[in-house]
Write a protein that binds this DNA or RNA. Sequence first.
DNA 1: GTCTATAGGCAGATAGAC
DNA 2: GTCTATCTGCCTATAGAC
Lengths: 201, 201
Amino acid sequence: MPRPLRTRSPDTAARILDVAERLVQRRGFNAVSYADVAKELKVTTASLHYHFPGKAELGRALMERYAERFCAALEEIERTHAEAPGRLRAYSTLYLRVLEQDRFCLCGMLAAEYQTLPEDMRQAVIRFLDDNETWLTRVLDEGRREGSLRFTGSAADVARAVISSLEGAMLVARPYGDTSRFEATADQLVASLTSGHPEPA
Amino acid sequence: MPRPLRTRSPDTAARILDVAERLVQRRGFNAVSYADVAKELKVTTASLHYHFPGKAELGRALMERYAERFCAALEEIERTHAEAPGRLRAYSTLYLRVLEQDRFCLCGMLAAEYQTLPEDMRQAVIRFLDDNETWLTRVLDEGRREGSLRFTGSAADVARAVISSLEGAMLVARPYGDTSRFEATADQLVASLTSGHPEPA
DNA sequence: GTCTATAGGCAGATAGAC
DNA sequence: GTCTATCTGCCTATAGAC
């Protein structure tokens, strides 16, 4: 049963993160100010500093929540897709959904800005990439053992190539404002790993 | 025969662009200020404004020179490499050289920051990507006709996938400070297009 | 061409009232 | 928790001397 309504909104910190996340994914961390976020939420920057003492803390929270949600999405994919090729397609669809919202992957954006980031955020970027690589490596390995995927070399190397390819495809698609550019590359990528196995519609 | 030494340095504008280019490729356009560039050159920001009235003009000049040099490098590749596979490898090496200098592709960096860029710079980013795609498409098409390359689908789609893959591999390699991460992905990419043809050492 | 000096604005951040 | 008010510093940019 839901709790009775409270005086304050359900979770102000979460709403701050929502706005900040969207802005950072579109413009980059360095191009987003407390004032930008505060303006959209119709509060003052002082109020933001109450919830997140500094931009470094805000950024860290941003990346942590993003990674948590992404990991949850990966688990969801494993529940809903039994086969490796389906899991790969679902994985690339996660990226597509972000692009469709006119956003770039938060991790990709922060990777570009990496050299200007505080240490906490840097570690969060690395962790996100490592988690993705670990998950993909497992999917690729299982797919190869089952015979549903085909590739040469180590699964970890291919996992890195998949991440690179999808991040790069997003990066390049955005200036054109054309999601089909991303889809074409993603489809090629999945097809190259499932050669010999027909793609479902 | 070289002209006699002049009172002023060979080309101040070029030296400004050199410093700005390096800083932007490392930190991003939004994270580089006139003061940063001026400090390295030991001049004042006012002097910078003499050569480039505003940051937008500086950015445009930056991207234009970068594209010119890149196109020149592509022509050089065609002169020095007769076969498509060699041209592809040389192309990926262009990216590697940038990464080795602890930089990201200027175009990739600006693609990430695209939504915050002035119109002139946006057009320059698109032009750069289009030029790369055109060149790669030609190389891929010729390679397939000669039989030295193998891939399915349109050469233009594969060209886009190659660009995405290399840009993404650079993006992801930088947080790790590990050029071998890039090389592994680039090698996989070239190998996947030259299957059936042994790689030279 | 480069300087000093400065304008005007926005950045991140804090103190203290309510 | 959110506000007003304010601080300090950096940003892009310009005027005018040299």
